[in-house]
């Protein structure tokens, strides 16, 4: 395959970037999108051009490191797929592909296609964990959890924190991410002790980080590589309002 790539190049957080055009040939349709970028980077290195910085780690769709806004879509044209699991067979020979970093005030660009997703970590640090002693691993089935509830908790826990929800949302809102993290613990017995303070603190931090509000467009869920449902956003709304109304922390 022969492709024309328009890639966002930006030296650092201070300077403004621009789209640069690169031609690339000899791409196999079986390559992953990131492998295609590896080939481009080798080519750029040979030409003494600074290679393009982009995030990646597992390349198996489980770690949440890869990102990229490809042809106007988070993680590219396919639904339910991370960029590392996207293959070049999803494109046609001769295509022009525009590659940009996630765009959000809360996700500043560090270099080229790499953004700082530290805002997610700071939200998690406010309560995305269980800090009470839940004892050692209990015997199987000693804590009864109905199957549908366990399923919902697992579905929420599938979130890999890649930030595609923020990238796709017209408001750069982090509601889907935060609601998945709130939900996975609100649904399970171990999460009950800190249930109210968790949602209050995580929402407060989310607001502080400068994400937008939720307009319920559903773009987040549609573009989520793990297909996290907006049901979680409704659950977080319920959790938050009930915590604010009945919680004893003022």
């Amino acid at each position: 395959m022969n492709l024309t790539l328009k890639v966002w190049r930006q030296k650092n957080n201070q300077e403004y970037g621009r789209l640069e055009t690169y031609k690339i040939g000899d791409i196999s349709p079986d390559m992953s999108f990131l492998e295609m970028l590896d080939v481009l980077n080798e080519d750029l290195t040979r030409k003494s051009i600074e290679p393009i910085a982009f995030d990646h780690d597992c390349r198996e769709g489980v770690c949440g490191m890869c990102s990229l806004y490809i042809n106007g879509r988070a993680h590219g044209p396919k639904f339910g797929t991370t960029t590392c699991q996207l293959h070049m067979r999803s494109f046609k020979d001769g295509d022009t592909i525009v590659i940009e970093p996630w765009r959000a005030r809360a996700f500043p660009v560090l270099r080229d296609l790499v953004v700082d997703r530290g805002a997610f970590d700071r939200i998690m640090q406010k309560g995305g964990f269980v800090s009470v002693d839940t004892g050692s691993a209990p015997d199987a089935n000693i804590i009864p959890i109905p199957k549908p509830v366990a399923e919902k908790a697992m579905d929420a826990a599938a979130c890999i924190g890649c930030g595609a929800c923020v990238a796709a949302c017209k408001n750069a809102s982090a509601m889907l991410f935060v609601s998945a993290k709130v939900s996975q613990l609100a649904l399970l017995p171990q999460g009950q002790v800190e249930r109210q303070t968790r949602v209050e603190k995580m929402v407060a931090q989310m607001d502080k980080e400068g994400f937008g509000n939720c307009s319920n467009t559903g773009a987040c869920s549609a573009e989520c590589p793990k297909e996290i449902s907006v049901e979680n956003i409704a659950r977080m709304n319920r959790e938050y309002f009930s915590a604010r109304l009945t919680g004893t922390e003022i």
């Binding site: 328009k6 966002w8 789209l19 806004y69 042809n71 106007g72 525009v98 940009e100 765009r103 959000a104 005030r105 809360a106 017209k170 408001n171 750069a172 809102s173 400068g210 994400f211 937008g212 509000n213 307009s215």
Partner: peptide, 11 residues
């Protein structure tokens, strides 16, 4: 919500 994305996507 507009301020939450100061740099728009080119595409």
């Amino acid at each position: 919500n507009r301020q939450a994305r100061p740099v728009q996507y080119a595409y």
